[in-house]
């Protein structure tokens, strides 16, 4: 069922400034979509609206057929925990937890800490962190921290993975490594991947690019057939 946005507007501030202006789109399950545009074009805001972290001023966003504005907070929390993964530009790891504990933390919320331990090890090993499970975030490089953050986003095998400039704070080698991991999550696990990026090369890796300007979708490549 994927993600559907219909006539979405987002205003912020007083007096209200329109950040997203009548955006409608559909992202099918298993797709890899990149959101591109200049700074201030509204691409990150759109990502957060589609991912339930932000709420629309008007319009409808549906995830797996559920209207986000109608969903109860507890149900939304469970949905985020089980169906969504997030990767941010600044990885946001919990400084007091080791890499392994950070990866496992979403699973603890739903009481799956024990059953997901093997999966956490596999993810860290697969991301080249096999000997760094017990390192604290400050003992890891930026690229390693971002890989831990991606492992954390994937621990619950989410249906949707939202990435906000995941390579923005990394050098090119680390950036390519991160993109490789994200692509594999999309192709091998079938995770729907929506990624905000400035980098045209990384955007080109997506199956579909949505380009925004001043809060509008100005171009979709290849053209969405929905």
């Amino acid at each position: 069922m994927g993600i559907i946005a219909r006539g979405v507007f987002k205003h912020v501030g007083e007096p209200p400034v329109r950040i997203i202006d009548n955006v409608s789109l559909e992202i099918r399950d298993g797709e890899f979509v990149s959101l591109t545009g200049r700074s201030g074009s509204g691409k990150s805001t759109l990502l957060y609206l589609l991912s339930s972290l932000d709420s629309v001023s008007s319009g409808v966003v549906e995830l797996s057929g559920q209207d986000l504005s109608q969903i109860r907070p507890e149900e939304l929390n469970r949905f985020r925990n089980e169906k969504m993964g997030f990767v941010f530009q600044f990885h946001y790891l919990i400084a007091e937890l080791t890499a392994f504990e950070n990866v496992l933390f979403p699973a603890r919320r739903s009481g799956q800490g024990e059953v997901r331990k093997q999966r956490a090890k596999e993810l860290l090993d697969a991301f080249g962190l096999d000997n760094k499970h017990d390192r604290l975030p400050r003992q890891l490089s930026g690229g390693e921290q971002q890989r831990v953050a991606i492992a954390r986003a994937l621990i619950m095998e989410p249906q949707y993975l939202f990435a906000d400039e995941p390579t923005g704070a990394l050098d090119s080698a680390s950036g390519e490594s991160v993109m490789q991991i994200l692509r594999e999550a999309n192709t091998k696990l079938g995770t729907t991947l929506i990624m905000v990026t400035h980098d045209p090369d990384f955007a080109a890796l997506a199956g579909r690019q949505i380009h925004l300007a001043d809060g509008h979708v100005v171009e979709q490549s290849p053209q969405d057939n929905s």
């Binding site: 972290l53 907070p73 507890e74 929390n77 469970r78 949905f79 985020r80 925990n81 089980e82 969504m84 997030f86 941010f88 600044f90 946001y92 790891l93 919990i94 400084a95 933390f105 979403p106 919320r109 739903s110 954390r152």
Partner: peptide
């Protein structure tokens, strides 16, 4: 604050 943001995105609610 960052931890709070990431915990909320993981599905941890207000009460937690």
């Amino acid at each position: 604050r960052r931890d709070i943001a990431i915990l909320r995105s993981m599905g941890y609610g207000t009460t937690e």
